[in-house]
Amino acid sequence: MHPFEYVRAKSVDEAVAALAKHGERARPLAGGTDVLVMARAGRWELDALVDIKHIPETNIVELGASEFRLGAAVPCYRIYEDDEISAKFPCLVDTASIIGGIQIQSRAGLGGNLCNASPSADGIGPLIVHHATCVIAGPNGTREVAVEDFCTGPGRSVIGNGELLVEMKMPIPRKGFGAAYERFTPRNEMDIAIAGVASSVQLNGNIIESARIALASVGPTPILSSAGDQLAGKEATAENFSAAAQAAIADTSPISDMRGTVEQRKHLVGVLTRRTLERAVERARENN
């Protein structure tokens, strides 16, 4: 492993400055559960890791009147151990409680999961279906990017040299909103999704006003499927969910590898789309 420096940033500006100084040879360090493993495996050659866990902004967990702000360094456990967040964002609990084991969840968070930009990330789909926006700080100020536009390829994102994901923000769900995430893995825990689907619906009676469906592990990036749009205005019925599942499958472009085959992944997307829509609708009805 190439020897790197450890920089503990106390502010966003300090972090941005440290990242900018080293360009491609620096990475932010949040949970470390991916970045340290990859540095050790020689995936990146780094001169510096910039610890962002001591910056107030990246640690924010704020349930406002209209917006939920989640700092980029907030570890998974702070989501599922917070009753209020758990009640309002059960879909985030779905994902936060299955990323790694308890040890990983003590450190890893959705921000790191996002920046890691893995096609199989469990955390990105749920953010997409919650209409989350990424707040990115950089040498030239702050910009915002929709989560679905954040990843640009396997392990690649819109984050440029010197830039730092500070927080994700998303609207507080209105009444009639429900979301759910489910992945398929051969083991019950400690595994990588062969396929994952996050679904959200805004329900009015039995009519789906709007829906979002995001897919994991079936393309080079997490995918915001068009299947959600097709559900808009339709009734929450098994037939419509099946149609949405077919539409979701059509949006995938999976590969066959050690974790699963193209056929298996497409099939699983269908199953999980149906299941997460059912669960999202259930939650939407509870949230009335």
């Binding site: 083991r187 019950n188 825990e189 595994d191 990588i192 590898d257 050690m258």
Partner: peptide, 15 residues
């Protein structure tokens, strides 16, 4: 290509 405990998938207590 699966030479890690992650992808070799030995049973955990939860399995």
């Amino acid at each position: 290509v699966n030479s890690s405990f992650l992808d070799y998938r030995m049973p955990t207590s939860y399995d």
